[in-house]
Design a binder for these strands. Sequence first.
DNA 1: GCATGTGAAGATATTCACAGCC
DNA 2: GGCTGTGAATATCTTCACATGC
Lengths: 250, 250
Amino acid sequence: MGVRTRPTRDGIPDATVSRLPVYLQALTGLAESGVPTVSSEELAALAGVNSAKLRKDLSHLGSYGTRGVGYDVEYLVQHISAELGLTQDWRVVIVGVGNLGRALANYGGFGSRGFSVAALVDAGADIVGTAVAGLPVLPLTELERVVRDLRVQIGVVATPADVAQEVCDRLVSAGVTGVLNFAPCVLSVPNGVMVRRVDLSTELQILAFHEQRRAASDLAEDLSSDLAGGLFDDDATIAPPVDLPKEAAG
Amino acid sequence: MGVRTRPTRDGIPDATVSRLPVYLQALTGLAESGVPTVSSEELAALAGVNSAKLRKDLSHLGSYGTRGVGYDVEYLVQHISAELGLTQDWRVVIVGVGNLGRALANYGGFGSRGFSVAALVDAGADIVGTAVAGLPVLPLTELERVVRDLRVQIGVVATPADVAQEVCDRLVSAGVTGVLNFAPCVLSVPNGVMVRRVDLSTELQILAFHEQRRAASDLAEDLSSDLAGGLFDDDATIAPPVDLPKEAAG
DNA sequence: GCATGTGAAGATATTCACAGCC
DNA sequence: GGCTGTGAATATCTTCACATGC
């Protein structure tokens, strides 16, 4: 029961942190449309979450809303940005300039919000020396120098899986403390370094799992559609009713 | 009831489902190396999780290990694949053939495991009609026809954010029931359709948050560096493979 | 009146620790 | 002896429901 609302300087739950970027995205959109305030209900709908969760999440940053009114859009944008560390500029190096690396380098949202691509690095003799997204592609041998000289904090691994761990090791020993891994493998890193993995196969497989379930329950539904009295099965025939997916907006 | 171990035909927890693809990846690697069996400890290390969690996860699929020995690699690969629905072929359409769409289309791991790219679709007059990754790029107007005729189940949205929702709506109304969204926005879909979001900004922002924290705690550490009885900072990362025992359990 | 902020309840997820089996 | 499989303990996350304050 703090007398006044503290910005809660202790831990923000991981689950909350992972949703803040989504809120920020929605809020930025609102700000651009000139919307001055937003209710938890509205913002939650835009972010695809339930409003109680949104309020709880925001409450971890402090009390930035006004009862009976809602949240000031600009104000919230500022606070979430600050909380995520977007007020400073993070320098990123992209290793691997294949199709994916190129896509990442050209990705607009990069520079816009606190991140700048400091360098592109690749091992291919044919691509080194060319320019991608306005930056020269440097040889892999320059990796350590670039990370050190430009004080790069975050490395993006967009290489084939078989060299990803080696690249990661080199990034880390050169001083990178955060890694975003697009290679389809698990990277191991020393304590104090954070890795996040983004993998197409993984995402597709998770979708496939749910597709399969849905197909199975559709079938069951068909089979019992006439009877509908529900005689058999006390034990779970299939699946709960419609168990709506994580991201589906209500 | 079960005299023998049932494959637990009811719900597998979401958290488990999201890790199965990682296990599968590690197991596939082991299989290719000709490793016949693996212990929970080893597999957990490869997957970057703790071994109790791995065992609990696998126990949801049934009892496929042998006490005192470990898990049969091939056998596990089969069962996890089946559980994820990879024994059937899922047809995917990629909408948006920019840098990212191209990267996705060329992504090898696609065809290898239960997924096939049925079509590429784009709105750009300049790119429609060309071939990417061996497939012709079709005009956006063909979207519905393609989804229906080829019975596509999964749509990949790799378009700019401002058209993502419209594309998604068209995919869904044409019959797609799973969507993988690479556009930096939240898609809303009807009940029964699942969306998964993959967003570079989001990942970078989550990394930035932790970077910022680390920087703050490094500072604190510096201040108290002489005292230090051995504080290498706690958590902060994806579980490192070294999982040190708190004390030798008696 | 109306929407935030939050204790408390409920649901999930993780970890421990050991029984059971090879 | 070694390793799986799992109840029980813990931790984390979500949701409810309403007091609080504009």
